[in-house]
């Protein structure tokens, strides 16, 4: 039988590979835009930092989609599904490797920001001092580590919720496509997609409300316990979706044929 740690390692390596490719693209974009600044004559020691800050949004967005695709591929490819391990552990290894890959991207981005920030420190230090002063007058200044950890937790929970919802839609359509006559497959898939998109829109709008409220709670000092309730609701939804996904994997979801 395959160990959970071994499957996690194998699944992570293919996802890390995607992250490395993304980082290379980002570095290329930073290099090109910095060279352009040099040509225009407005290059300074802080240009690299500004360039990294500007381009970093792209890897975050693309990695979300890319990791979701890799996550879903594992459910329907024999390459992964033939591993002798229970469906529950398989699902956990897949999702955990996706989360860890995303955290890895975050770390790489932080390193990149730190390196380019140090290069341009002579220009950035005054901006940093101003930021420190303005933070001292806000609630964020009283507990910056706690606020950052809180934001990171919220972001991870939101990403987890999004990935498990994508899996739910994918696994439902995958399971349905095996049982329904070919003629009706497209109609049913279409209906499932529309229903799931509507639900997703509702969930997203709810989440956006939650995020706005949580942000104001964190910054404005409303009760922390009510902030955690929002997170717990999302964790509960993830747990329900996880049970449903494992059940679908175990009973109905087949791999694509060779």
């Amino acid at each position: 039988m395959t160990k959970f740690s071994d499957l996690f390692k194998a699944m992570s390596s293919s996802k890390f590979r995607s992250i490395h490719q993304l980082m290379l693209l980002e570095l290329a974009a930073v290099a090109v835009s910095s060279i352009w600044s040099l040509i225009r004559g407005d290059f300074s020691s802080a240009t690299l930092f500004y360039s990294v800050m500007g381009w970093s949004i792209i890897p975050y967005l693309v990695s979300f989609v890319l990791l979701a695709v890799r996550n879903e591929q594992a459910f329907t490819r024999d390459t992964f599904r033939l591993a002798p391990i229970s469906d529950g552990l398989f699902y956990a290894a897949n999702l955990l490797s996706t989360v860890v890959s995303f955290l890895y991207l975050l770390v790489l981005q932080l390193v990149l920001m730190a390196v380019t920030g140090l290069i341009g420190w002579s220009m950035l230090s005054s901006m940093y001092d101003n930021m420190q002063m303005s933070l001292q007058y806000s609630d964020l200044g009283s507990n910056p580590v706690g606020v950052c950890l809180g934001m990171l937790t919220v972001m991870l929970v939101i990403y987890l919720l999004a990935w498990s919802t994508v899996s739910l839609v994918h696994l439902i359509t995958s399971a349905a496509s095996n049982y329904l006559p070919r003629a009706r497959q497209r109609i049913v898939n279409g209906i499932v997609y529309v229903v799931m998109i509507l639900i997703t829109f509702r969930v997203v709008s709810y989440l956006m409300g939650q995020i706005a409220w949580m942000s104001s709670s964190l910054m404005g000092g409303t009760t922390v316990s009510s902030w955690w309730i929002g997170v717990l609701i999302m964790i509960l939804i993830i747990a329900i979706e996880t049970v449903a996904n494992i059940f679908l994997l175990n009973k109905w979801v087949e791999t694509t044929t060779n």
Binding site: Q73, D78, T79, P84, T256, N258
Partner: peptide
């Protein structure tokens, strides 16, 4: 699965 080795076509890579 632990007793079976299947010639899958490496579509996961």
């Amino acid at each position: 699965k632990s007793h079976v080795s299947f010639s899958e076509q490496l579509h996961g890579f």
